[in-house]
């Protein structure tokens, strides 16, 4: 190992729920990579349990959840709940997808740090992650 410090931001991008629309998740994964981050991509149809567990093993700084099925009100808070149970609630969780405005305050109250709706840029997401992850 080296003594020179090489901090890299690690982000888990996951698609909870049953929908297969992974365009957004993939675009974000690429954009994060191009911004110099390490992106752990876990693919489609992940249960909240799988996501929380992977995030802890990978010791990520942030989790990005993408859901276009309408089940975000169940799935997103569940991930937060599981992280809390395992003492990993310092991981910043953000979400994206077809999410009605009225759900956003509820998701934020449940612990989702930010919600990106269609039209948000990858630049905004990158900026958000860079300025919101907690230093370890």
């Amino acid at each position: 190992m080296t003594t020179q410090v090489q901090q890299k931001i690690r982000v888990l991008i996951a698609k909870p729920g049953l929908d297969g629309h992974d365009r957004g998740a993939k675009v974000i994964a690429r954009a994060f990579r191009d911004a110099g981050m390490e992106v752990i991509y876990t693919g489609l149809r992940q249960t909240p349990e799988m996501i929380a567990s992977a995030a802890i093993q990978e010791d990520v700084d942030a989790i990005g959840l993408s859901c276009l099925s309408g089940a975000h009100m169940y799935l997103f808070p569940k991930v937060i709940e599981l992280l809390r149970e395992r003492g990993a609630d310092d991981i910043v969780v953000f979400g994206g997808g077809t999410i009605p405005d009225e759900d956003i305050p509820k998701l934020k109250a449940a612990g989702i740090a930010q919600v990106f709706t269609p039209g948000a840029t990858t630049g905004e997401a990158i900026e958000f992650v860079k300025s919101n992850i907690r230093s370890k």
Binding site: K8, A29, R30, F32, R33, D34, A35, G36, M37, E38, V39, I40, Y41, T42, G43, Q46, E49, M50, S53, A54, Q57, E58
Partner: peptide, 22 residues
């Protein structure tokens, strides 16, 4: 591999192994 251009990486091997994550 890490991208030589950005220093970032997409780590996707785990997708195949996710059933063991629990």
């Amino acid at each position: 591999p890490t991208s030589p251009f950005s220093g970032g990486a997409i780590l996707a091997d785990r997708i195949r192994m996710q059933r063991h994550s629990l």
